[in-house]
Amino acid sequence: MAIDNETIRHVAHLARIDLQAKELERLHVQLHEILGFIDKISNLNIEDVLPASHILPISNVLREDIPHTSLTPERALENAPSKKGNFFSVPKIIE
């Protein structure tokens, strides 16, 4: 399957990654090559095969509804690039 610049731009937007024009060009070439290789799997007949979304034969893993100790806000926020009081702070949301 071919991938065009428009698709790469859209996907990069979904992934929230800024791409410079040069980067975009390089990615286009590389992704084209990688996808060309990956497309190999489209030859296989897999109509009746079940997808292996989970490789383990285990199911119903649950935990009891028992409280654990939470972090103190100081610990929770100690790695934060920006905070205000007990809050994490982010720049204004402009859609």
């Binding site: 991938i3 990069a12 992934a15 990615l27 990956i38 296989l44 897999i46 997808p51 292996a52 490789i55």
Partner: peptide, 28 residues
């Protein structure tokens, strides 16, 4: 960045079945 973009593409609308779902089946 390359892998994030490739992975985002493989899951994206219109490509999921051809790539991700198909890959899960071949994994089987």
């Amino acid at each position: 960045k390359r892998r994030i973009i490739l992975g985002t593409f493989a899951l994206s609308h219109g490509y999921y079945d051809a790539y991700y779902l198909r890959a899960l089946k071949v994994r089987t």
